[in-house]
Simulated assay, not measured.
Amino acid sequence: MTIDYSKNNGLVPAIIQDVSTKTVLMLGYMNEEALKKTLETKLVTFYSRSKQRLWTKGEESGNVLRLIDLKVDCDNDTLLISVNPEGPTCHKGSDTCWNENNTQNFGFLTHLEDVIASRKNNANKETSYVASLFAEGINKIAQKVGEEAIETVIEAKDSNDDLFLNESADLLFHYLILLQAKGFKLNDITEVLIGREK
């Protein structure tokens, strides 16, 4: 790995990202010595511009960043470091230096889960399909998942991709509703799958 330390007085930016959630936790700076120590100890070490010395994240708090992977960008002057964080990353006690929670995010599917939760808790069952399903109870929700699963299987056996994709979307949507009716979210399913990984 070739790293260009010449552009910023011997330092390169190091973007720290949680390996599991992909959340950006912080930005620090490394010199050649900090990178060498990081690779040797597997604990992320920076060069502190204010203290003018090497600084291993968590050396006082215990909230270390365990190195998983390291990549250099296309210009060879920025690092992307994947870590397993132990405790909050920010010195102010938050998960990230942007005061965000370091939680699993599935992009649009996480947004959809939030919409379902909002409709479940706040919407009128007369005007909201989601609220009406929750009002009818777990049996109706489970029945809808079963119906959508059968329709998805039927469309999988035909050649109309548009119908297959639409039925698949219906199945996933109703499955997300079923998960919440049982008190769970996608993250709970992810944890089970991770536990099965060999």
Rank of each mutant, 00 (worst) to 15 (best):
M1T: 14
M1V: 10
T2C: 12
T2L: 15
D4G: 03
Y5F: 05
S6F: 00
S6M: 00
N8S: 10
N9Y: 00
L11H: 04
L11T: 03
V12A: 04
A14T: 04
A14L: 01
I15R: 03
Q17E: 08
D18K: 01
V19D: 13
S20W: 03
T21H: 00
V24L: 11
L25K: 00
M26S: 15
M26F: 04
Y29I: 01
E32G: 13
E33H: 07
A34Y: 00
K36N: 13
T38Y: 03
T38P: 07
L39E: 10
L43R: 13
V44T: 04
T45K: 00
S48M: 01
S48L: 00
R49D: 00
S50L: 05
R53S: 14
W55R: 04
T56H: 01
T56F: 01
K57G: 03
G58K: 00
E60D: 11
S61Q: 02
N63P: 02
N63R: 01
V64T: 15
L65H: 00
R66T: 10
L67F: 03
L67E: 05
I68V: 15
D69N: 14
D69M: 05
L70P: 08
L70G: 05
N76E: 07
N76P: 06
N76D: 09
D77V: 05
L79T: 03
I81F: 07
E86Y: 10
G87V: 01
P88Y: 02
C90F: 03
H91Y: 10
S94V: 13
D95G: 02
W98V: 12
N99G: 09
N101M: 06
N102Q: 02
N102M: 01
N102E: 01
Q104W: 06
F106N: 11
F108Q: 14
H111M: 14
D114T: 14
V115P: 03
A117G: 10
S118H: 13
K120A: 09
K120S: 06
N121Y: 06
A123S: 05
N124T: 10
N124R: 06
K125D: 15
A131F: 05
N139Q: 06
A142L: 14
E147C: 14
E148W: 06
A149I: 12
I150C: 13
T152S: 12
I154Y: 14
I154F: 14
E155L: 06
E155Q: 07
A156S: 14
K157R: 10
S159W: 07
S159Y: 07
D161S: 13
L163A: 08
F164K: 14
E167W: 04
A169M: 11
A169S: 08
L171V: 09
L171F: 09
L172W: 10
I177H: 09
L179H: 07
Q180G: 08
A181D: 10
G183S: 09
F184A: 12
L186V: 05
L186W: 04
N187M: 06
D188N: 12
D188P: 07
I189S: 02
E191S: 15
V192D: 02
L193V: 12
R196G: 13
E197Q: 12
K198N: 11
K198T: 13
K198S: 13
